[in-house]
Write a protein that binds this DNA or RNA. Structure first.
Length: 602
RNA sequence: GGGGACGUAGCUCAAUUGGUUAGAGUACCGGACUGUCGAUCCGGUGGUUGCGGGUUCGAGUCCCGUCGUCCUCGCCA
C-alpha cells in the first residue's frame, strides 16, 4: 500500500482545514452524481466524507466504481464544507476531503447483509429493526462486528476490563493465571473434557471456574488475588448463557463477608460511574434470602418495580375456599400480588394468559379479584366473607381498580410461580424502561448452606461444597442441617444474578463434616479433593471471595438482552460457532494418536 | 430430554378461504445527473417458497417427517 493513513476517519475537524491528509477505511456509502462523487469512508473511529470533483475527471471515474465495503486509501486536502451542506449527524461533518489520490486496497463482493453505518438517528433505528437474521450475521461475524452497535459494546467491555484491572491493582490485588487443563470434579456442571495423548485413557477437564486454584493461592499466601478468567460449562444455553464465559474471579485472605462487600462495592461504583456515568449509592442494600423468596419469589429479585408478593395465609384460613384451605392444611402457602390499577388491563383472555404463566411453574391455578369500591368482582367472591375482604384490602393495600392475583400451593411452587408472574407482569405492563439507565443493585445474603435433593435423597451444597457455614449455625450442622445458613452472597442487578461468592471453609475438620453431610465418604472426598484437604491442613488462612459474570455485566452496561452481543465470537444456542463450524469432526489420525479410534472421525 | 415461535429473491418482508405467471422495499447490473449524505430519477437481472413425503383437479398456504435458528422448562455446585 502506498497511501498510509495520517488520521482516522473520526478525527478531522475545522482545525485541520488546509492540511493534506490520508485516510484508510471502508466505503460506507457512495453517492454518484456523474461529474461529482461522494464517498463516506468508515473505520472504527468514525466516518469522513470525501468529495471527487471535475478538476480530476479520471479520479471521479475511478470513484464511481467504488462499492460498499471496499477498502480504500484517500489522499486529499481537508476543506470546509460549502455553507448549508454541513452534516450535523457526523462528528467530522463540518469538513470534507477534496480527493487528490485514490488507492484501492481491496475489493469486496456484495456483502450478504448490509453493514453500512447510518448516521441519522431515526433512519438508523428503522434499519436496526430489520437487521439480517442473527444466524446469517453470526456466519459472517467479522462483517457484523463492523457495525457500530457491536463496536460500541466491545469498546465498552474493554474499558470495563481495564478499569477493573486498574482498580484492583490500586487495592493491592495480584492478577494470577490458573490452568485451563485441570482435573474433573464431578460436582456441579458438566465438564468439557480434553483427552491426554501422553496418558491414553486419561482426561483433563476445562475449568468451570478457577474456584479450587484461587483457594490454593490463598493457602500459598497471595492474599489478594483476581483474574479475568474464562470458564467453561457443558450445559444447555440461554439468552444470557454461553458455554464459555468470563468471570472476574476474586479471592481475599483474612476477611469476613463485610470485607468482600466493601471491596466489591467500591469496584462496582467505579465501573458504573466510569462506564455508563451512573452513580450507584453505597452501601448496597442487603436482602435476606428468605425475604427475597417471600417478597419477590426469587433469589435474584428485580428491584426496579414493586409488585411485591404478600402472604395471606392467616387470612385465607378464614375462608371456605377449598383451594386456599387445602394448600394451607398440607403445609403450603397462599400468597398474592396486587397489580395496581390493572383491573381493566386484563381481559378474560389476558387473565388466562397470566394463569398459563403460573401453570408453567407448577401452580394449578391463578385466582383473580378485581377490586371495586363496595365489593370484589371475582369468581371466588362467594368464598370470601366481608371480613376477609376487609382484611385483604388492608393487607394488600387494595384500592378500587386494582387487580389481585393469588396462588395457593407448596411454598416452592408459590414462590416460583408468583416470582415469574411478577417479572411477566412487569414486562407486560412495561414497568421497566430499558432505554433508561436504571440500575438497582443488591446483595442477597443468608442463603441456606444446603438444599434437600429429593431425587438423590441427600443434602446438596447450595453454593458449592467449600462454602463456610455461619459461625452461630456451626453447632447444628448435623442436627438441623436444613436451617444452617451459609456465609454466601449473590450480587443481583436488575433481576439478574451478576455475581456470587462466599467465605470458604478453612478448617479441614469442618470441610470433612460438610463432605460427609453431602454423602461423600472420606475416601471419596480424598480422591476428588484430596489436594484441597491437604492444603487446608498446611496453614490455610481464613479466606473468601466472589466471582462476577462479566458477560452479564457488559449486557447490563450496554443495555442488551442478548449475551452474543457482548462476545466477539460467540456460540449459538446449540453451542455451535456458525462462522468456523466448530465443533467438527477431526482426522482419524488425530483420534488414533489420542487413543480414541472409532467415533467422531471424518 | 420437554414446550413454543419462525424458515418465501443476496437482505428485510408480503401473498385473502387451498386457486391465474409468487409481489414490494432494499441490494445488485445498465443509464441520467456538479453539493449529496439511507442521494435522486429511469430501466433491468434475480425464486428448487429449508429439505423429503402425503392429501388435493390444484399446495408458499393443509398433514406427517426431517434439518436449521431463536425463546423457554429441566439443567447451569
Amino acid at each position: 500500500m502506498k497511501l498510509r493513513r495520517t488520521h482516522t476517519c473520526g478525527e478531522l475537524r475545522e482545525s485541520h482545514i488546509g492540511q493534506t491528509v490520508i485516510l484508510n477505511g471502508w466505503v460506507n456509502t457512495y453517492r454518484n452524481q456523474g461529474a461529482l462523487v461522494f464517498i463516506d469512508v468508515r473505520d472504527r473511529y468514525g466516518i469522513t466524507q470525501v468529495v471527487f470533483e471535475t478538476d480530476k475527471p479520471e479520479l471521479v471515474a475511478a470513484a464511481g466504481e467504488m462499492r460498499s465495503e471496499w477498502v480504500i486509501a484517500i489522499q486529499g486536502k481537508v476543506t470546509a464544507r460549502l455553507t448549508g451542506t454541513e452534516n450535523k449527524n457526523l462528528a467530522t461533518g463540518k469538513v470534507e476531503i477534496k480527493a487528490e489520490a485514490l488507492e484501492i486496497l481491496n475489493r469486496c463482493p456484495t456483502p450478504p447483509f448490509e453493514v453500512t453505518a447510518i448516521t441519522k438517528e431515526e433512519v438508523r433505528k428503522k434499519v436496526e429493526e430489520d437487521l439480517a437474521s442473527e444466524e446469517l450475521r453470526l456466519e459472517y461475524r467479522y462483517l457484523d462486528l463492523r457495525r457500530s452497535n457491536l463496536q460500541r459494546i466491545l469498546i465498552l467491555r474493554h474499558r470495563m476490563n481495564k478499569l477493573i484491572r486498574d482498580h484492583l491493582d490500586k487495592q493491592g490485588f495480584l492478577e494470577v493465571e490458573t490452568p485451563l487443563l485441570g482435573k474433573s470434579t464431578p460436582e456441579g456442571a458438566r465438564d468439557y473434557l480434553v483427552p491426554s495423548r501422553v496418558w491414553p485413557g486419561s482426561w483433563y477437564a476445562l475449568p468451570q471456574s478457577p474456584q479450587l486454584y484461587k483457594q490454593l493461592l490463598m493457602v500459598a499466601g497471595y492474599d489478594r488475588y483476581f483474574q479475568i478468567a474464562r470458564c467453561l460449562r457443558d450445559e444447555d444455553l440461554r439468552a444470557n448463557r454461553q458455554p464459555e464465559f468470563t468471570q472476574l474471579d476474586v479471592e481475599m485472605s483474612f476477611v469476613e463477608m463485610d470485607d468482600v462487600f466493601q471491596v466489591m462495592e467500591g469496584l462496582t461504583a467505579d465501573v458504573f460511574q466510569q462506564c455508563v456515568g451512573v452513580t450507584i449509592p453505597l452501601p448496597l442494600p442487603r436482602i435476606k434470602y428468605a425475604d427475597a423468596m417471600l417478597k419477590y419469589g426469587s433469589d435474584k429479585p428485580d428491584l426496579r418495580y414493586g409488585l411485591e408478593i404478600v402472604d395471606i395465609g392467616d387470612i385465607a384460613v378464614q375462608t371456605e375456599f377449598k383451594v386456599f384451605r387445602g394448600a394451607l392444611e398440607s403445609g403450603g402457602k397462599v400468597r398474592g400480588i396486587n397489580v395496581k390499577g390493572a383491573a381493566e388491563k386484563f381481559s378474560r383472555k389476558g387473565l388466562t394468559e397470566l394463569e398459563e404463566v403460573v401453570k408453567r411453574f407448577g401452580a394449578k391455578g391463578l385466582a383473580n379479584v378485581k377490586v371495586e369500591p363496595e365489593k370484589f368482582n371475582s369468581s371466588i367472591e362467594k368464598f370470601l366473607p366481608v371480613g376477609v375482604q376487609q382484611q385483604l384490602r388492608q393487607r394488600m393495600a387494595a384500592e378500587p381498580g386494582d387487580l389481585l392475583l393469588f396462588v395457593a400451593d407448596t411454598e416452592d411452587v408459590v414462590c416460583q410461580s408468583l416470582g415469574n408472574l411478577r417479572t411477566h407482569l412487569a414486562a407486560a405492563l412495561q414497568m421497566v424502561d430499558v432505554t433508561k439507565k436504571d440500575y438497582k443493585l443488591a446483595w442477597v445474603i443468608d442463603f441456606p448452606l444446603f438444599t434437600w435433593d429429593a431425587e438423590e435423597k441427600r443434602w446438596a451444597a447450595n453454593h458449592h461444597p467449600f462454602t463456610a457455614p455461619m459461625d452461630e449455625d456451626l453447632a447444628k450442622l448435623e442436627s438441623d442441617t436444613g436451617t444452617v445458613r451459609a456465609k454466601a452472597y449473590d450480587l443481583v442487578i436488575n433481576g439478574d444474578e451478576c455475581g456470587g461468592g462466599s467465605i470458604r471453609i478453612h478448617s479441614p475438620e469442618v470441610q470433612s463434616r460438610v463432605f460427609s453431610l453431602l454423602g461423600m465418604p472420606p475416601e471419596q472426598a480424598k480422591g476428588r479433593f484430596g489436594f484441597l484437604l491437604d492444603a487446608l491442613k498446611y496453614g490455610a488462612p481464613p479466606h473468601g471471595g466472589i466471582a462476577l459474570g462479566l458477560d452479564r455485566w457488559t449486557m447490563m452496561l450496554a443495555g442488551t438482552a442478548n449475551i452474543r452481543d457482548v462476545i466477539a465470537f460467540p456460540k449459538n444456542q446449540r453451542a455451535r460457532d456458525l462462522m468456523t463450524g466448530a465443533p467438527a469432526t477431526v482426522d482419524a489420525k488425530q483420534l488414533k494418536e489420542l487413543g480414541l479410534e472409532g467415533k467422531g472421525g471424518s
